Simulated assay, not measured.
Amino acid sequence: MDALEMLLQRRSIPRLAAPAPSGDVLENIIQAGLRAPDHGALTPWQFVICEGEGLTRLSTILADAAQTNGADEAAIEKARNAPLRAPMVVAVIARTRPHDKVPTIEQHISAGCATQAMQMAAVAQGFQGFWRTGAFAYHPAVREALSVEGDDQIVGFLYLGTPDCAPANAPKRDTSKFVTYL
């Protein structure tokens, strides 16, 4: 699949199995993230890779956050199982810093671009993934557990692994609904 076709056919694959990317493949995924647009060369990203025991720790962090919110047992269990939907989860954090020419929002967007680049690098190498954010990305206990402070944000959790289902067809969208010209 060439690069344009990959972008035009991009779909999240919600069911992922082992193996997760590793070795040179994982290094390529990380390097793709590090090539995201980066005004001012601030490198406003951090990637926290969770696999094996790291997935178990993330599972506990999310379950504890759900419990702190007063969730019922079903919601706590759902939070506990969320990271286990893939053999690897990469928490992508926008690590911002004050800059007179690069507003915080640009740094957050840059981290989002890094996430997309990492997902596409995984697909290009035969793996798949999906990007989730959700309420836990903003939960104080989750932020604290991942050392997210101040204007820093968790921009998403990138789930990666081997596809365990066929992707749905990507719908062709009517560009006239999204594009105007000046």
Rank of each mutant, 00 (worst) to 15 (best):
N169R: 15
V148E: 03
D100E: 08
P83D: 01
A94G: 01
E106Y: 03
N69G: 03
K101I: 03
G161T: 02
I105S: 06
I105Y: 11
T162L: 00
A71H: 03
V90Y: 02
S59Q: 15
Y138M: 14
R57D: 15
V155D: 00
P140W: 08
P171V: 10
A114F: 12
H99G: 05
A121C: 12
H139K: 09
Q153E: 13
V92T: 08
F157S: 08
R132N: 15
V102Q: 00
C50H: 15
C50T: 12
L55F: 05
P98S: 09
Q119Y: 05
A82S: 14
K172P: 05
C113S: 07
A65L: 04
G70Q: 04
A82V: 06
L62N: 04
Q125E: 09
A111G: 07
A86W: 00
I109G: 02
Q125K: 02
D72V: 10
I93N: 03
D164S: 15
T162K: 05
N69T: 06
L58I: 08
Q107V: 03
R85H: 15
G156V: 08
P140Y: 08
E149F: 05
A82F: 08
K101W: 09
I61A: 02
A75M: 07
N81L: 14
G156L: 06
Q153Y: 09
E149G: 07
E144V: 05
E144R: 11
K172W: 10
K78W: 06
A141M: 10
P163F: 14
V123K: 00
A71D: 09
A65N: 09
Y138N: 13
A63K: 07
Q128N: 12
E149P: 04
I49D: 14
T104W: 02
D100C: 03
C50N: 10
T162D: 06
A137P: 00
T104N: 06
D72K: 08
D152C: 14
D151C: 07
I154L: 04
R97E: 10
A79Y: 01
A66N: 02
L58K: 00
R85N: 10
